[in-house]
Design a protein around this nucleic acid. Sequence first.
DNA 1: TTGTCGCGGGG
DNA 2: GTGTACGCGACAA
Length: 745
Amino acid sequence: MDRRIIANEEWLWGWDPTPGIVSVWAEANGRAVVWRRDPQTGVLVREQARFRPWLVLDRIDDLPGLAHRELDGPGALRYFLSAEDGTALASAICRARGVRHLRELGQESVLSLPPEEQYLVATGRTYFRDLSFSHLRRMQFDLETTGLSPEDSRIFLIAVRDPDGNTEVLEGPDEADLIRRLVAKVQAVDPDVIENHNLQGFDLPFLDHRASVLRVPLALGRIGAPGLRQRPGRRRVRYVVPGRELIDTLDAVLRYDFAARDLPGHGLKEVARHLGIAKTDRENIPGDRIFTVYQTDPDRVRRYAASDVEEVAELARMMGGAAFALATMAPRRYERLADAGAATGVIDPLLVRAYLRSGMALPSHRSGDGTAHTGAALHLFASGVARRIVKADVASLYPSLMRAYRIGPERDHLGVLLAIVDQLVERRLAAKAAARAAPPGSSAQHTHEALSAAMKLVVNSAYGYLAAGDGLTRFADVHAANEVTRRGRETLGLMCSELAARGVTLLEADTDGVYFSVPESWTEVDERRVVSEVNALLPPLVQLEFDGRYAAMLSHEPKNYALLTYDGKLLLRGVAFRSSRAEPFGEAFLKVSIARLLVGDVAGVREAYLTTVDSLRRRELTTYAVSSRVRLTKTPERYLETRVSRRELAYEAMLASGRTAWSIGDKVRVYRVNGGSAGVVEDGLDPRDYDGEHYARLLRETFAARLARAFEPDDFAAVFADPGQMSLFGRSIASISTVLTQHDT
DNA sequence: TTGTCGCGGGG
DNA sequence: GTGTACGCGACAA
């Protein structure tokens, strides 16, 4: 085989075939423990390994006598040093350079990875070879506590789900005993992976704190002394346990939403509902009510907690596959790949391993030369209502441009980044095909889809890696990044002008995609034909694809629009049309009125408006429907201090409802009560004492306003005129039509 | 009014 | 061990 191809394979997957690694724990003293699961039998084995801790330095003239190897090429980090004991090596260097820790040398002078990564890079091993996601032994647990803060609340119940899907609820008045039982359960089940939503942000810190207060040893790991260890992380400290991978589904959700941008929120319940994981009869209890409900109806809380771990298990399965697949490529722990950003978290380790494998020196991080980073193009050609909509886009535009024009980091002399992107793009096609060929719902399908998702993630972050500012990534190159975006703007411009030349009306174009409206006489065949005609004019490897067709579109602002599909479904995109804090009545009104608008039923829009105004004024809508969700950020004491100068609805509502004790972070639904006071929506109560006039005003000024671009100003005023003042407008609603306004671009 | 900061999540 | 969510409300000036 071609030597270059072999190199590329190793760059992507490492080279050591050892199968079944499910966890690695290594220490600076050169000892590593590797847990492997036999792909055939599923049996877990623990292996002790020795490795030579290593690091790479910029110079060694001050370190006479230290064994080293000089790497090839022009990179600044060129002296590879290794030793029996990494601690001794590090302290020898620190002594010579007069620092207390290697970190102080700065990343321009030293590359020093965590011990596990040293081990994986040096051996060419990766996690999970020959293993599929379903082989992993995954356990979920969820704490139910009396409050959010471990200082003044406690654990009263723990739901646990084992890898075979059995759910158990631990409870009892003795919190220390509860924690001991959780620890015993973890030891008995011996999972490879522990999962929960916001595990790192809530459950582990809470557990850690309570266990230390109660002096219960937290022996959750497979080896070593009890107690959670910590490592610094992006958002906060991350907890680590030897032998097990800690997976926080919140990380997967954030990563998913970063690309998809279609989640209503990032909470477990919202995501589970959105993805169709949640059972329809799922028990739901507002967070601040859980302990109260437990005292009168403990069964409800048991069901609630059990649903949580079951939903987490399914969510982790659906979203965890990508990180699992990444762990078969990059020399990092599975849990690190699950929470890291793709650029520094995945691509950088791949590049480092490739360079060292090739015996090449690495560039050190370097700040830019002051050249500004230039971004993508965004055009709003027209706003208002248009019909016969087509969306066309270029999948993975930036990586395609990098491949087409061979734009890579200047200092990547081996060409690893482009080689990796080339290979991932090609292999992804195979993975997608394999996923399509696999039986629906099978483990094989999950594996191929996850691999494809992982490859897409890496490919799409190759540009981000290039463009990362101010020394963030090792090979960052603002000139190369600017060349990519310049080609991107050029490509988008070409797409738009060639589409326009073929008789379509351009609506909106952003980075790599364009919405346009086609003439009335066109069929779908015509629509597809122009897309493929324009595609033929684009650079090789850059593929313009027909992404969808819609009956109508309300274009409000860039990235804020509504689409009506040909089978009558309404899609709302952008913050103007979906806000988690919006009052339910407003969301409902938007849905109905825009649906009417997009079928050309202006009278129906008016009708929806009148009905809503009327129901608000008569208080026919529930109190819940007008309430909005708020998060309390001040303690009662702190609010009382500022109350004289500034009254806030949420806290006034709490006080008016007699709820004088609350904690920071509590979420409640509040509303404006008739007469100027405020109220909290209590479980199961519906007092209907809200200020209908206030909400009628909100309807017009906040919600109806989002349809403003659909009409001429006078017509807008007529459609949304107050029912009492209709006579001011002499014209009939039926004669009003929607408009599309062209903008200069 | 305009600018800056912190949040999202978890009970 | 690396960070660049990104859009919104709260708070200060």
